[in-house]
Design a protein around this nucleic acid. Structure first.
Lengths: 367, 367
DNA sequence: GTGAAAGCGCTAACAG
DNA sequence: CTGTTAGCGCTTTCAC
């Protein structure tokens, strides 16, 4: 029972099948150009010996690893407060698995770890990277660019970071971030839909509790809110926007402040479900009924949260797992494109820039 | 900017430093037995060339990878509903990073993936595995044992699985699971503390909403509840135990049933915070006050949940991140022990069996 | 279509 | 203490 100590090699399989190592190698790697009877004999030998290729030896010559790093910046700890992270990882994992790639997880705890991650990526241990770094002015994208590893970002990187990643010296770009591949949901469009829904309900004093504004998702949702408010009501009352931070506690704080400023508020668009959760609590405390007195809409549709609030939360759904899958898919595609010729240093060859996934409004009882 | 195409090799460094490859290798790997001036010259060359060792080449000869697989059974999807998973991963990541090991994440979606995982582990791509598979009769532990990879489990494996993993043919063991390394929190002790607390509050009709009883943690918590009830009150009323499943919805269902069976219940020990959340909702609905009419205690101390319930939840805290760190630590230690001689097939050499981390009761307002 | 031979970049005896 | 010499297990021209 302790014989697994040294695993069979190509050589062993070759011997057993009575062929050369080269032939076994061919069969193991798809089997083109090997006549059927021979191929069959090899396959049998592989089975009988329980042969599994040695990835290290293979990588050494092919210079490929069939492994992708997933980098998650720890300060992005919001990610630990909700299942966002887990879902995205699951999507990524599925896609990578489907293409026989391994997932190497790199969690960072701040500055100190950046260097470590950069070194690892530069070390050529993986074929590409999936990076979550949604904070403004995060140095990581720049470091990763220098590492020269094909990368797809999760969430729209901020412009400064994007330019650095694209290798441009100029900080300010006019248009969209070009040259940086990323996947995000339609934060702005989703926010628009939420606010429009509130307006359609007849509400006029529609407030917004923002997310942490050092993340692009929060900025984009705020922009969406403003789009619709400006459109519908002309100038919107700036007091209706309260900055918060994506947490329930932050939602409470912001809601309290809002109630102080604008006691007549009749609708709230919260930057995410957790924020809505806090807002709901404060609203109840203040004796207001939801949705009769104040309608509330969230964002994310964290189902375990949104379905369990009182009342159940109307919210904007994004396909988190789908985003993960898409990120991995884009990276893998870029990698196989780049197989010959020089590798693209960032994203895919004809880099698609950002891919934006749609959102949908889920109506429950809160609005 | 596109010259990173081929990275410098040991050879290149050796040439630049005017020494042999062996010397460079020595310096790179700790530098024992190389005289200082020489070592310094090598280090400079390394820096100048930006040399990073090729892990594949290294693994090929050392047969080590400095990589550990983390296997998470997806049906274990509870894990996606709360931050448990993320926290544990963070603990693991910290410990692995501290020892320069990489984390390869393997998520499984059920049976089909088991084979894939087993093959991967058997493939010798990693030095060890950390496995989360807390379900009764999960085949994974057995498969993993066959793969012959040193493993530490997260959560006490069930006896059947444990025996299989330990290579014993006999299914039923009398004592603790021996030979299988695992880390768990003191589920039973924590449950005892919770129930004792309720009793100390003067409650006598103390109910328990169980977790999913196909997981050892749920079984252990139930056992703890029974320990104390039997001790304090002699035989406890079996109607006070309602089976649930660790989810808020399950908690609601169970609580409703409990109220039907025993309207006079005056305390509830819920198998986890999510279950308590559901119970709280039903209690409120039914017009009961918490804790005045019914006191409630949870388990886990998922802070974002427990602090945000109404009233804030008294619960049993376990150090989730610490468990992750400990698991990784045990595995790594086992690996370095096993470096020479034959590798331990499961856990560390003098396998400690289970390591149980303490829990503490966190008093908030609900009990 | 198949085999023989030449490494991929590194470590680990073994000499010196 | 340092250098020389063999491979680790695999893929990949290049002949046959």
């Amino acid at each position: 029972m302790t014989e697994a100590v040294s695993r069979p090699t190509l050589e062993a399989v070759a011997a057993r099948a009575g062929v050369s190592r080269a032939t076994v190698s061919r069969v193991v790697n798809g089997g083109d150009g090997v006549r059927e009877p021979l191929a069959e004999r090899v396959r049998r030998a592989v089975d009988e010996l329980g042969y599994v290729p040695n990835q290290a030896a293979r990588s050494l010559v092919t210079r490929r690893h069939d492994a992708v790093a997933v980098v998650i910046a720890e300060p992005e700890s919001r990610v630990f407060a909700d299942p966002f992270f887990a879902l995205q990882l699951r999507g990524i994992s599925k896609e990578l698995t489907a293409h026989d790639n391994q997932l190497v997880l790199l969690l960072t705890e701040g500055r100190a770890d950046h260097a470590r991650v950069a070194r690892y990526l530069a070390g050529g241990h993986v074929d590409g990277a999936l990076v979550f770094s949604l904070h403004l002015d995060d140095p990581l994208p720049g470091l990763i660019h220098e590492a020269g590893v094909p990368t797809v970002f999760g969430g729209r990187p901020d412009r400064g970071a994007a330019d650095r990643a694209a290798g441009s010296g100029r900080r300010a770009r006019t248009g969209e971030e070009r040259g940086v591949a990323y996947v995000d949901c339609d934060n702005r469009g989703g926010a628009r839909a939420a606010v429009r829904h509130l307006l359609d309900l007849g509400r006029r004093r529609v407030a917004h509790l923002t997310g942490a504004l050092d993340q692009t998702s929060a900025v984009d949702r705020l922009d969406g809110y403003r789009d619709v408010m400006a459109d519908a009501l002309g100038a919107s009352d700036p007091r209706l926007v309260v900055e918060s931070d994506f947490t329930p506690a932050g939602g409470e704080r912001a809601m309290r402040e809002l109630l102080g400023r604008c006691p007549d508020v009749d609708a709230v668009f919260a930057a995410n479900d957790l924020t809505a959760l806090g807002a709901l609590r404060v609203l109840r405390e203040s004796g207001r009924r939801v949705p009769e007195d104040v309608a509330v809409v969230g964002f994310d549709d964290m189902v375990p949260v949104a379905e369990q609030t009182d009342p159940p939360l109307t919210t904007v759904r994004q396909d988190i797992e789908g985003m993960g899958r898409l990120m991995a898919g884009l990276l893998l595609r870029g990698l196989s494109d780049g197989r010959d010729g020089r590798r693209p240093t960032t994203g895919t060859r004809d880099t698609p820039g950002g891919v934006i996934l749609p959102t949908t409004l889920i109506r429950r009882a809160s609005a």
